[in-house]
Amino acid sequence: MNHLDKLEAQSVHILREAYREFKSICMLWSIGKDSTVLLWLARKAFFGHVPIPLVHVDTHFKIPEMIQYRDDLAFKWKLTMIYGENSKAILEKNTFPDGKIDRISCCKALKSEALKNTLSGEWDRYIMDLTTGKYIPDINRDRYTGVIVGVRADEEGSRSKERYFSPRDKENDWDVGDQPPEFWNQYKTDFAPGTHVRIHPLLDWTELNIWEYIERENIPITSLYFDRGSGKRYRSLGCYPCTTPVESTATNVSEIIEELKSGKFANIAERSGRAQDKDDGGGLETLRRDGYM
């Protein structure tokens, strides 16, 4: 087995554990390359099927191609596609792009809050009708007790401390100091009522592994990652007001891999294009404790 086979086998094992153990489970799909690899791994684990609903938190400031790509793929692969949002903040224009609040508060409102209430079923959820491709209100309001997330340990400090199965309390809080032990492929799958578990099948993958796997499996990803003539491409996807493309002329997966291995990005952190990380010292960490992915 090569290193990608090993990573794949481990992720598949974790996905199957999660699917068996949690009755109400979902997978967060950010449309980015990592969670799309995760979606692909689910198809590996379940032999072409995706028996787990995909949840996307729509901030309404996502790069438009992302939403188009999401809906096209969901329709084609017959996914149970669900999205949630902070409709109040969006309606009242209580956002950073509207000039009312700072970046961190905006992330908190449009992502963390929206996510928390979408997962708990307290706010409305919308599900794709696979006959029409349109979204309709989701009648299921159950709290998701298992949430599969595509974070990687190499992204930044706090993520490197994550468990594969990571419990969160009722307030979505993550107690970094008191995490469950994990060994011999045995994970925390028993949980007290009201708590839920985040599941991280991609924890051991690096950015390079993700691209190598996309190339090997020929996984369709959004073209925003490639230079389409402007000499720029996105390395990490998010909301357009806070995510800037990087200077790069990579037009396909193998050029990106080359760039990561030996080129200009070999030593530059992946999230360097994400403005909210820089706004305070432990920016992402503060957000993460609050439920941000």
Binding site: H13, G48, K78
Partner: peptide, 13 residues
């Protein structure tokens, strides 16, 4: 680990 019978798309495995 599990026994799967996903019937989507006419799968009978």
């Amino acid at each position: 680990q599990d026994i799967y019978k996903f019937t989507g798309e006419g799968d009978d495995r």
